[in-house]
Design a protein around this nucleic acid. Structure first.
Lengths: 198, 198
DNA sequence: TATAATAACTAATGATATTAGTTTTTGCAA
DNA sequence: TTGCAAAAACTAATATCATTAGTTATTATA
């Protein structure tokens, strides 16, 4: 019987994540969210800057969580082991939170300071995980892009049911990572072979 | 001054593609499309089954074009050359038609007969392009998934501005393909080394 | 205890998709 | 050539959504 339900940002985000993960990101509307929270939709404007503001918050929230699980995955590891665990953590997150994962990529204003900071931290983390391959200068950054492309591509296609074939997805993913890692080793070998003759 | 403007499906799709590529897929609404075609939005229902029907048609249209450019890219080639050209054609398509490319992945009902046919043809094409690597049985299909993951991941992140770093994208892409191909060669070498001792 | 800020609300507007029912044009058959 | 049926446009109406303006109730603080 009351204005003052006790709504706050964490509560709102949690509800939004639930809708996103279960029904899909497109189903996260101010209307559906308000209904879930037992509130009229204009009330949400007291906490969030409209639908686009909500999406931004959701993106940042997802990036934070993703960075966290990736960080946990690589601590105390290096080389192939680190990359493999990083990859497994990435797709596990995307599988556990399909809607939230979607939100991290859709609409996140690249200008947003928070988004830039998290993106930078993530790149740093992966660069460190790739240290063992002795990639010089830009090569390490290119490798980060490559790894991210492959992780996102796999996750995205898996979510969209883009893989029609009746073939074990975990095997596909393991082989993909193995192939990429074998490639990295080969590139490292070539780089050394090229450097030595000088 | 007339019912009978002369609307037909190709015209509608062309207009939808233009909106999608220039303003983004989300901006393809029956309202915006009707305005562009100088028609009232209910008229579109004579040609297309609502917004979702339009999206389906758009997805199929995009898949057809993508398959076409990929096919052109591999004819007369094999091995690394074929895969490289295939990859270049894929990202070139995604760059030239960002909205249409988006449409091929969003919402395409996997049940849709047309979508299944095109997906199957695409897999066949890539399997053939990978013949040189002598992958046996499922390994070829896993490799197709891997290649597609990497191509889609790169294209998707490039479009969303997901790569914040000031680093040449074409170089990143070339290195990614090189790494993957080096990995494939290495996997082939390992498979042979394992087979010989028997 | 009174007041100011906050957080809920109702009401209203504009955009969208969609359906129902209407009109006009066109193509084809008598 | 004429008339009729189907197709393709239309208008009108409804429902859902986001958003803004303005209101009311609650809480915190002076």
């Amino acid at each position: 019987m009351s204005p003052r339900i006790g709504l706050d940002l964490p509560t709102i985000l949690q509800a939004a994540v639930e809708i996103a993960d279960i029904r899909g990101l497109e189903e996260v509307t101010l209307a559906s969210l308000a209904q879930k929270l037992d509130v009229r939709s204009p009330s949400l404007y007291n906490h969030v800057n409209g639908l686009s503001g909500l999406r931004s918050k959701l993106a940042v929230h997802g990036l934070e969580q993703l960075l966290h699980v990736m960080t946990q995955a690589v601590v105390g590891r290096s080389g192939d082991d680190a990359v493999r665990e990083l990859g497994k953590a990435y797709v596990a997150f995307a599988r556990a939170h399909p809607g939230l994962y979607d939100a991290t990529l859709r609409a996140p204003d690249p200008q947003d300071e928070e988004v830039r900071r998290l993106a930078g931290e993530t790149v740093d983390l992966v660069v460190r995980a790739l240290q063992a391959y002795e990639l010089k200068d830009d090569a390490a950054l290119h490798a980060v892009r490559g790894l991210r492309s492959l992780l996102h591509g796999f996750s995205s296609l898996e979510q969209r049911g883009g893989f029609g074939l009746p073939l074990d997805l975990d095997v596909s993913f393991r082989l993909l990572l193995d192939t990429f890692l074998a490639g990295l080793h080969e590139m490292k070998r070539r780089a050394k072979a090229e450097a030595k003759p000088n």
